[in-house]
Design a protein around this nucleic acid. Structure first.
Lengths: 237, 237
DNA sequence: GATGAACATTGCGCTAGATCAAACTTCTGC
DNA sequence: GCAGAAGTTTGATCTAGCGCAATGTTCATC
């Protein structure tokens, strides 16, 4: 456990309206922990005994099907709360949280949830905003999966990742955590071969630049155009 | 506007912990209204000025893509709150709510939301449980769309509908609101032709019984077996 | 610096399911 | 009762992208 400074929390939305003293209290109740890339912070279905704040890195929220296939429902960037089952009226975690990169997270026992909500102005409302955003994101995923072709879904997924957790770099925007073809396929409901083929094709025309576990989006605009293009004219009323 | 009785609300989870007097107050502030089949109660993106409680009928929550295609994200059965954008920290509705059948709904102005949450014990927590359930449902949809074949997705969709808003009948369970092949296709991300073909095939072997705008699930067990069967062995680690 | 594991690429065949099209049935309104 | 609309069925193609397989590349470990 390392020394933490109040200035870490104060700029983050859930805590932005709080006094220095309040943040100090919150920090004193927190457990800070580093997790290696790939480990799971908590598992779907287990009792939600803690809630978390991601200080650094990226979380991959995954569901595992009975058949053992993995589906990524969400990526959570640094600065957001996660594992907040209480806000959904649940006492178990609805999905598994994996560290997409090495991460640093604070956590608090669930028993403190109610007092956070009651005592810290803005905490509850910001939490619900976060949930609202995640709900929209899931909704978008559903709409995309129903109407878009694989090519467009992958384009959109890359744009979203670049936007959400991208690092600007000379050649474009680099997705700031290691990501494999298989990861992208689990995010878009395809196969790693298809992802590989597309990335190769896009690389050839200078849209992206990808190495092993690294993807750099070079031409955001053309990729966006691609993702909007020929959506299936199915069910056009 | 018709006469409403307290006994209507008291068995519903969001109000179950309240006194008769409290429910009376809530009712006095409510607007009751009937909507014809097919009309929209509110539209995606418009300012969320009211929140609703569905007393009778079924709501179909839909999103419309830029290309004009419709995607159904959710069905809401009688007894549940809907249009509760406030609980997601939003001030506009995230989707359009259509009446799948003729429906009856109460509504309150958004301005009352905060006082409901503050004054009525159990209201907030039940709301969040509802949201939690909807989030799981959406999650399930995403997982299904990524890993299941059309046949299984349709099977699951029918089972879910039968379960959620089914009426037991001699021949099996009837989905209690009018539903077309096109509706099912918008719910499962397919085409109405494919749905029609499958329903015909299932009808031939006695799994379902469907007429125009009516679907009766006859053999729940075999349909469930079908829906669990051959999930794509893709990405099996 | 060799061996194995993890990740990526590419080719080929195949099928689930979309697309196009046409006919049929049931309902609604006049 | 008729016309048109809305919903359904069925057939005949056609193709996106999956499954399978083989090979290549990069990384980690001893």
């Amino acid at each position: 456990m390392q020394k933490l400074d109040e200035s870490l929390l104060s700029p983050l939305p859930p805590f932005s309206k709080l006094s220095r003293a309040q943040i100090k209290t919150i920090l004193s109740q927190a457990t800070s922990r580093r997790y290696d890339k790939g480990v799971s912070i908590f598992d779907e279905g287990t009792v939600a005994d803690r809630f978390y704040l991601l200080l650094d890195g990226t979380i991959r929220v995954v569901k595992i099907t009975p058949a053992g296939e993995q589906v990524t429902s969400l990526h959570i960037p640094a600065g957001q709360l996660f594992g907040i089952s209480q806000a959904l009226g649940r006492d178990t975690y609805p999905a598994t949280a994996n560290a997409a990169s090495e991460i640093l997270a604070l956590s608090w026992p669930t028993s403190l949830w109610a007092s956070f909500v009651a005592n810290y102005p803005g905490f509850a409302s910001e939490t619900y905003k976060t949930i609202g955003k995640r709900v929209s994101e899931m909704n978008t995923r559903i709409v995309e999966m129903s109407t878009q072709h694989v090519e467009q879904r992958i384009a959109r997924a890359l744009l979203r990742l670049a936007n959400q957790s991208g690092r600007p770099i000379e050649a474009g925007t680099e997705i700031s955590f290691p990501i494999t073809r298989k990861d992208v396929s689990e995010l878009t409901g395809t196969t790693l071969q298809t992802v590989s083929r597309l990335l190769s094709a896009w690389e050839r025309v200078g849209l992206v630049n990808s190495k092993r576990k690294k993807i750099i989006v070079c031409d955001t605009h053309r990729l966006a155009a691609l993702s909007e293009a020929g959506s299936r004219p199915q069910n056009l009323m």
